[in-house]
Structures are given as C-alpha cells and as structure tokens.
Amino acid sequence: MQNLENQNIELQLLLQAIYLKYGYDFRQYAKASIKRRVLYHLEKHHLSNISQMQHRLLHDVAFFDSLLLDMSVNVTEMFRDPACYRVLRKEVLPALKDFPHIKIWHAGCATGEEVYSMAILLKEMGLYERTQIYATDINEKVLKQAKEGVFPISRLRQYTQNYQKAGGTESFSDYYHAQYEHVVMDRKLRKNILFSDHNLATDNVFGEMHLILCRNVLIYFDRGLQNRVLNLFDEALIKSGFLCLGSKESLNFSTVTEHFDVIAKTEKVYRKKNEEKT
C-alpha cells in the first residue's frame, strides 16, 4: 500500500514536470489509463520507478517525445463507427449546405483517418470546395503522419467495408492509390484540410465552427477537463452548429448539456440550440 501511495505521488510529480518543462498538460487526464501508459513506458525502457523517468525526461527531449507518443492513444480508422457517418451524411451536412462557407473542426484527429473520411463525405455531397477542415492534435508526430495521408494497406479491407456501411456512393478505391505496403490518399482530398497543433487542455477557441468532431478523446479526460473542452466547443460553434462525439461519450456530466439538442442518441450527434444563452 505504501508503495502504491508513493507511486501516485511520483505520477503527480511526473505530470507536473511534463507540464512545466514541455507545456503538455496531462494533469487532468483520467488517472487509471494514464498510469497504465506511464508504467508501460517505464517497463519498455527498463526504468525502476517513475522518479527515474521524471529525471530522464527533464534532460532528454527525445525520451520525452517517445513518452508523448505512448501517452496519447492514437487509435483510429477510416469511417470509424459507420453509423455516425450515415448521420453526418443524412442529417448534419444537408443542414449545412446553404452556408456559402463551411468550417469543420476535427479535434484530436490523431493520424487523420477520420479527417480523410470526412473529406470524402464532403466530396460526395458536393460540399468539399467550400469547406475548410481544421484538423488538430497535441502530437506533432501523428500530425505529420496525418498530413502525409499514407496508411497501411493491411487495414484497407476494413476501411472499404466501413466506407460502404457509412453509405459511400462511389468506389472507395477512387480515393487512394496503392504503393507497396501502403495506400496513399488522393492529394486532392487534402487541399482544404489544415492540420495543426492544438491542445484541448490548454489552448482556446480559434474560430467559429459549423461542425465539431471530437471522437474518443474525452474518454481520456477527467470530468473537469471534459467540461472545459465541451465549453470550448460550445463557444466555438455557431448557433445551430453540430457536435459529434465518440460512441461512449456524452454531454451528460457537463455544464453545457442544456445548450444542445440530441440529434442522434446512439451516434452521439448533438446540435447547439438556436437561442441566446441565459
């Protein structure tokens, strides 16, 4: 028990050290999962305790970079949860089609698979040319991968199935070309996507949005940080703008619940009410 208590103190100090030295704020991340990932990294580098790790990361930037990759969960796929994309196709994008210019924020985009999925959806609905997509993540390494738009060919079968289940109207193979073990996404899809660095824990709103997607990011935050981020989204969305969360996430514990209507309960699509805040 003593050991466990010390470990928790060490973990808190580690997160504090990361924040002070590098500006990444993991202090309000859900503890159980962050602890698991820190301990995993500890084992991988044969360090005997978290204090040792703290010492190392303060003096070794490359070590911190590798820890940062382990600390954020970058699991994603093309057209992940296809039902959600069907709701976007049928209910969300048609409601935005009369705007001369559409702005979409994909927060926590990881390696970008879901951003390219959105670009495909917009193309098929004839909305791509007047849309700007802002795709953000805290991790520059994954953003670089996202920009390249090169994905392992091994996942293609599942992506193609997802695309079809998501209501795709063309052939998925129109959107990439295969190159050895990889597929390279069509460059034209990237034209209106701006990939950039943004930290939901510390940064602010950077523009008015018609649609915000933030999927499977909030599950890693504690209630306080979830609430901060949802307030950020509330602030960024135009009236009647849409918010799309991960399938196990919700607005339930936040202070903005009342500002939104539920558009699709299972797919976690919400719409900001068209009224002044009280």
């Binding site: 928790n8 859900a30 503890k31 159980a32 999962s33 698991r36 990932r37 969960v73 699991v75 499977n216 599950i219 890693y220 196990k248």
Partner: peptide, 16 residues
C-alpha cells in the same frame, strides 16, 4: 473498449 476503475471508484473506458 478496455474498462478501468479509477481511484475515486468511477469507471473509465479506453481504446488503447
């Protein structure tokens, strides 16, 4: 989803 229990006895999910 992975299911985890926090020290405050709330539940967390993860896609690790």
């Amino acid at each position: 989803y992975h299911l985890l229990i926090e020290e405050d006895h709330s539940l967390s999910l993860s896609l690790e």
